[in-house]
Design a protein around this nucleic acid. Sequence first.
DNA 1: ACCTGAACACCGTTCAAGT
DNA 2: ACCTGAACACCGTTCAAGT
Lengths: 248, 248
Amino acid sequence: MMGRMSATSTPRPGRGRPARLDPERTVTVALDLLDEVGLDALTMRRLAEAMGVRAGALYRYFATKHDLLTAMAERILAEHALPAAESMASATSATSADSASVPEGPAGEWDERAAALAYALRGALLAHRDGARVYAGTHSFGPGTLGFADALVGVVREAGLDDPDAARGALAIVHFTLGHTLEEQAARGGAPDARTSPERLRAAVGSDDRHPHLRAVLPTLAAADFEAHFAFGLRLVLDGLRTHRRRL
Amino acid sequence: MMGRMSATSTPRPGRGRPARLDPERTVTVALDLLDEVGLDALTMRRLAEAMGVRAGALYRYFATKHDLLTAMAERILAEHALPAAESMASATSATSADSASVPEGPAGEWDERAAALAYALRGALLAHRDGARVYAGTHSFGPGTLGFADALVGVVREAGLDDPDAARGALAIVHFTLGHTLEEQAARGGAPDARTSPERLRAAVGSDDRHPHLRAVLPTLAAADFEAHFAFGLRLVLDGLRTHRRRL
DNA sequence: ACCTGAACACCGTTCAAGT
DNA sequence: ACCTGAACACCGTTCAAGT
């Protein structure tokens, strides 16, 4: 609530030059540019141009490009994943205070809520071009990231796991989601001229007796239905958590 | 076996200049350099220097830096993950031909073998500095990558899943392993001067009432026992596969 | 306080020319 | 056939100087 991200003096309205640059707007423009040109072409110079400023000026608010990328990752989580986490929290307290009258509240059981959070994270990473790569390359400790993580750990704890297992269960969900979205965006956003992934897989494994298993599942892999892949993998992890819970 | 990676004319021994450059050696030196300086400092010019050649010469065998990185990823899989996959395959045929006399063969049940393959993949990605990032940024279709994938899909099919589910089960294992190792290497190999991840987590969540769940699991997260995290997450996925199998 | 101009020390990639 | 030399079009980052 109070000056979390912007310890740097807030520009007083009307005093001095109207700053063309501030951290919030810089991140906003950077995310727009990311969607336009992709991570590999997102340079400090291009971003400066998009902000009507020279490249050196960006270093007043971000010490390095990596710091800017971290702020972008934080914004992505805060905008797309944190809302789901927060609606979850309010639904939780409502349910615990009034559990009988709301048989299937808006948030549902722990496993439904864990799934909703995983989907929210996937949605956040897919919301911007190369979002997963930006997220994987940085380590934000901002309110969006921490708020989401707290909610996810909370849901797993609620499932009945002890603290170490809850931490590891949440990590498993995050790591699977990260790996999945990384591959999903790599398969989609590839160079527009390059052959698409399914095509290349077909060519590599199509008529070759050395990989009989890959050949058998080729139709599924070539279909590239990433949502179905995600749903299945997530179900495996959540079923695993259920199994673990019963062993208590 | 026959000219798989090297369609480029093999240098005839003794004829002409002894080529200082060839794809195999280039990849070998590149992986050594990767371990020394890390992915961000692995440049074509540095690599050229390490090979006693000028940067432009590298482009005779690799059209782009990305192609070189793809060859590096393929080598990593071929060297560290494929052997496990192949020993698995031979154990399988031995078991199926002689299943009674080898009650617990060297390869074991499908879930033990799936776990062994997942650990082999993790080991491969951890075998080189930034190995997970190299792997995540490329898409190899070489014999190492395909051979490993084939073995993994084979094990999951053997568990009794139908083809679409087997493909998705294998993907889940790979994606979880990728996400996990990415985070593991990011947490370890961070800038040597920067504060380490656990420290920063402690600082961010240590005495703050807004993230009670994170605070509760902080000891586990700060311990950074990545092997335990991996073991737990993998068990969740494999338990999920077992559950799924029973539903047939 | 905020930004420019200009520089420093690099990049990936291309390609005529040498041997 | 294989590699050099030199260039092209960029990078991230720094910092004195301007306003």
